[in-house]
Amino acid sequence: MTLRSLVATLALLVLAASPAHAAGTGSACHVPEAGHEGKVDIITPHITNGDHVEIPYWKFPFFLECTLPKWQPIHVGPLEIDLSPTKHVVMLWIGAALLFLVMLLVRRAHARAVTRGGVPTGGANAIEAMILYIRNEVILPNVGHHGEGFVPYLLTAFFMILTLNLLGLVPFGSTATGNISVTATLAILTFLTVEIAGIRANGVGYLNTIFYWNNELPAPMRPLMFLIMSPVEMIGKLTKPFALAIRLFANMTAGHIVVLALMGLIFEFGNLISGAPLVMATLIMVLELFVAFLQAFIFTLLSSVFIGQIREAHH
């Protein structure tokens, strides 16, 4: 019942949005012009953000290029911020909608199975297995006492990153997690979660994780060590989310570059030995499938480790 109304709402939103988009400045789909001579860069357009999306088309070349609408930039003080949707923003929307739908279906299947007194089957069971594994083996052991409160955020981060990684592997898709802004936003969310968890767990003792004041040192050494060590502690605090953002971004981007470069070799070599790059590209693609899961897992694992670390900092 709820699900049906939600789907209807989503459909209405999409319908309502599309004429609005068309009314904006130049949002149109067209068949891309063919016949480039000489060298063509196939890698850069695939891994960078842009104001175009590709949608499937039933005639050659089997895709349409759609220009996304351009919105008026908004002004925040002296800053001019362009909030127009881009390719990766569209992938974020698609990922969020997909995840929302899948999780609602899983929840419904689960509720139905529980009232019947059994367990859900098929996809719902698979998602449940993943949720339980992440919750019981990754989040709870690393976060520590009463870690249940962090499970919703960390599971959401896991499934969102996983969905975005996988959307980058389907045809016509693009990897939103291969955009440093997206991974930086995710890392900032983790950073805020970690710091707020630290403040809540340690109270005033939280200041010890930023400033270094060691009473065991001789008195004249204390201010000197305070001046030297406090910046190092702060840098340590900031480099953790920085490493999180870079790790996810670099892994997703690097995999796509490897696959695209191998595909490029097919055209470079011609018919003679094009089979070899094809096999390698296929195998790297399978590896990418694994990396999509692995990087989502690593992000969740590291986030929960950082939360656990700051929560037991006062011991």
């Binding site: 990754v138 052991p141 690393n142 190092v232 340590g236 480099t239 694992l301 480790v305």
Partner: peptide, 24 residues
Amino acid sequence: PRPSSDSDPSSIGAAAKYAGLGFQ
């Protein structure tokens, strides 16, 4: 809340604390 067995993820977690040390 730590599981009784020394399962793999917790030992990965123990090592993962030092994942950002190079940047620091």
